[in-house]
Amino acid sequence: MAARRAATGASGWARAFGVLARNRLALVGVGLVSLFVFTAGLAPWLSPYEPDRITITVAMQPPSLDHWMGTDHLGRDILSRVIHGARIAFVVSVGAVLLGATIGIPLGFLSGYARGWVDHAVMRLMDALLAFPGRLLAIALVAAMGGGLLSLWIAISVSSLPKYARIARAAMLEQRERDYVYAGQVVGESHTVLVSRYIFPNTVAPLTVALTIDFASAILIASSLSFLGLGFPPPTPDWGADLSSAMDGMEFMPWAAIFPGMALSLTILGFNLLGDGMRDVFDPRHYDQ
């Protein structure tokens, strides 16, 4: 009985927010994500210094009242760089997630609805993309295309594309065999209406969860690429690149390696917690209680 009462209808959404609000970890996630978005949006007004202003006289200072997170080997304020790093991470991840989702989801839907040879062709292509281990495809693409925003977007979205396509396809295949889709067909609905009104609304839940968690992985891949020196050229204030340059003087100024990493980890943590919370919300088992 419980399983049948899937997340549904208007009251379904109201109940969903109730479940989310009861989940404290998910609220932490909401807080961290909001902080990230807020910082990214207001970076120029929030940061106390210019992120790339070099002042050799204050180089390698530990955290103090003037520089809350200390300064790096060129005397740049780490707090300001962390704040501006949020903006970079935001731009990269939003673009990559949108690009991956807008191509991957329709592809998956098409594959699951058409079935037959279309499905075969699309899925073999996705299999091939998935055959590249983890971040390797992104690294290879960036290596070939060179750094910069556009190639980061392309590299990250191509490696997340198969994930979306598979989730969308699985949701579509699952829905297609439902009796209410057959019933819609019997009523005389066209293919367009069947997909848009009968099938699509029921695939929103798994896709939203995937989208949220993909933000975490987009930020992670982007920072990995910058850490390897494949992202933006210096002096762009990028968390991954800053961590890479902090590696050399780590014995003398550990703060330069700690704070950007913390900002990065907390942001990823925020999206992961939010995604987990939403998964719980959409889990039909929560509905009958």
Binding site: T8, G9, Y180
Partner: peptide, 13 residues
């Protein structure tokens, strides 16, 4: 047509 399982034959949303 009328199907077997009324829980799955009506579109939930």
């Amino acid at each position: 047509a009328v199907f077997q399982d009324p829980f799955s034959s009506l579109p939930p949303r």
